[in-house]
Write a protein that binds this DNA or RNA. Sequence first.
DNA 1: CCATGAAATGAATGGTGGTTCACTTCTTAC
DNA 2: GTAAGAAGTGAACCACCATTCATTTCATGG
Lengths: 198, 198
Amino acid sequence: MAYRATAQTEQRKQQVHADILKAGKALVSEAGFRALSMAAVAERAGIATGTLYRYFASKTDLCVAIFSHATEHEIQQVKAAARDGTNVTERLRNALITFAQRALQNPALAYALIAEPAEPELDQARLDYRAAWADSFATLIREGVRKGEFQPQPERLSAAAMVGAMAEALITPAMTQSSTTQRQRQIQQVVQFCLRAV
Amino acid sequence: MAYRATAQTEQRKQQVHADILKAGKALVSEAGFRALSMAAVAERAGIATGTLYRYFASKTDLCVAIFSHATEHEIQQVKAAARDGTNVTERLRNALITFAQRALQNPALAYALIAEPAEPELDQARLDYRAAWADSFATLIREGVRKGEFQPQPERLSAAAMVGAMAEALITPAMTQSSTTQRQRQIQQVVQFCLRAV
DNA sequence: CCATGAAATGAATGGTGGTTCACTTCTTAC
DNA sequence: GTAAGAAGTGAACCACCATTCATTTCATGG
């Protein structure tokens, strides 16, 4: 027998895998999933198009992987922010602000993750992650209700509504086309809107 | 000279034009703009593909026309509901409920109109109509603030947030996969969320 | 009827882009 | 060194559609 297991080759493969995801995320950040062609990803990652298919069975699979990877990261950031604060209201505010500011730092990516649909499989992944978003807010709301900071309400629904309110407000022309300081003020205002509602 | 002007042929042309829009709307209602191919529209409208180009210069133009037509209709419905009620709160509630119920009657269409992007030109049209949506809610909010029913706030931003909150809540699995009566209750709850926020 | 020009047709065209595969290059084990 | 098998390559293939255009059909006016 020859060539049985793999030692550091595994390392190399993981590296290529990561490179592909990184290249894909960069492309999506620039012009959304519509701009993601297999040829473009391959070039960006410094490999041949055929090689992509050694790592992902299809374009759809690749898109889902890119999407999941990026979203997971965003959710982590927000969850971290949600731990920060003396009371629930403040923690919710921090979570919302983080959500907003990260989205504005990379609007194209945020748009692609939140709204841009592609294939049905990707839409399915998006629904799953929307649920994850809503969960992280819903947990906070539930805690706030228990502690008497918020009034009783259907947490999941409120959380979903919050995600929607933030997302919609963020893609408003008023938001995307104004100065940084104005934007900060507008973020505060949307967050206020959400906090009033709970 | 022969064949100068046109008498009832004009009628016929208008009819074909309407048929095309209707066919397109039907396709979008079934599977979004992604499912809209020129061949499919032509077949559905009972004409040849080439004929489409006598009525619309390109696929993009056709999409924009379908989009505008459908959206215009939706906005009219909501504006009508906004005239109904003894005070501003009630009128806003009616507008929101109408928005929600119409969306649930035809989820695929609603999704296509609110969120699904296609070409940049269509996105532009969408932004215009988002503004129209926001305007119709913003007018109500402004009136409510003036009359002291709502607290002072940036009306446009609140209106946008409202549209987002409603839209997001409506595509929640809990919403799309439950019985009619449960759905009604959930609509009430999202509307409550919005009303608390103003 | 018949001439005229608009309207309709649908097969052919062309561009795009995902996917395949015969071949080359690299890694490992003996 | 060399055999075996994995990884990588990229040109070729193919499906899918928007768009075009030579041809046919239809409506009008003399």
